[in-house]
Amino acid sequence: MNNCDVVRCADGYYRRVVYGFGPYIADYPGQVLLACTVSPGLYTCRIAELFVLQPFTAYFPRADIHELLTPDLLHQKVKGTFQDHLVTWVEEYLGNVHGKAG
């Protein structure tokens, strides 16, 4: 990632290119896995305690996984507000008012 490559682009011109990483979008369990952190409520296994875990970007210059991780806002907001809260509430309400469907 420190050296540039000469690459022929789609427009036919040759350009020097330095490859890098952009934002990495993942849901919360994916972020915990990528950043090699422990989530509250999750227990570490005995094997993980024997090894020092490092993210896959540990040896890449200019790539810190903790700066690259961005939340998946659409997934988290839709799942958190709509699916987990509203759908569960409506199902419970309909079950109490109309009974369970057979």
Rank of each mutant, 00 (worst) to 15 (best):
F82V: 10
R15E: 14
L74V: 13
L42I: 10
G41H: 06
A101F: 08
A63H: 02
F82P: 00
V78T: 14
Q83W: 02
R15L: 07
N2G: 07
L86T: 04
L74H: 04
V32E: 03
P40L: 06
V6C: 08
V6E: 03
N96L: 04
H85L: 10
G41Y: 02
P29S: 12
L73N: 11
Y93F: 15
A10M: 13
A35I: 00
V90M: 07
M1S: 06
Q31L: 01
L50W: 05
M1P: 03
Y19I: 01
F51W: 03
F60M: 09
G102D: 11
G22W: 00
D64K: 08
V6R: 00
Y93V: 14
S39H: 12
T44Y: 01
K100G: 06
P40D: 13
C45A: 07
E91Y: 11
H75W: 01
A48M: 03
N3G: 02
T70K: 02
Y28K: 11
R15G: 07
P23G: 08
K100T: 14
Q76E: 15
D64G: 02
D5C: 09
F82W: 10
L74Y: 12
V17S: 01
T37P: 07
F21T: 00
F82H: 08
R46C: 08
K100I: 10
E67I: 05
C9Q: 14
N2Q: 11
P61V: 03
D84N: 13
V90N: 04
K79L: 04
A63N: 03
K79G: 07
G99P: 12
K77W: 12
F60P: 00
